[in-house]
Amino acid sequence: MSNNNLIKGSLQTIILKLLEENEKMYGYEITQRVKELTAGEIKITEGALYPALHKLEAEGLLSTEIQQVDNRVRKYYSLTKDGQKEVTSKMSELQGFVENLQRILTPDLKPGFNI
């Protein structure tokens, strides 16, 4: 998909935001939720998702929980206290970036423009 490179930089923010809204989620559920929210426009590839989840877990932003589901074991991810703080900072960072990008793309917009 052509927007893959654009998503790469904001993948961690997407994951953190989704986990802020949902108490706990597993890998496949995250890919499906993003697909559902964007009507299939954004597809998170498994190649990027799992390394990102493991990195966030190692940084202490996500905690994990293992649960028996049907006849298999599922790993759920949820936000830690540090993760909850990080969502706010990552969100404002991303919003700031989108606003600045908007100003570059449409220079006619006034500096006070907010998304």
Partner: peptide, 14 residues
């Protein structure tokens, strides 16, 4: 074991 468990769950869920 962690990777196996996660990939297996992904396959089945999909």
């Amino acid at each position: 074991a962690e990777i196996l468990m996660e990939i297996f769950d992904h396959y089945i869920s999909h």
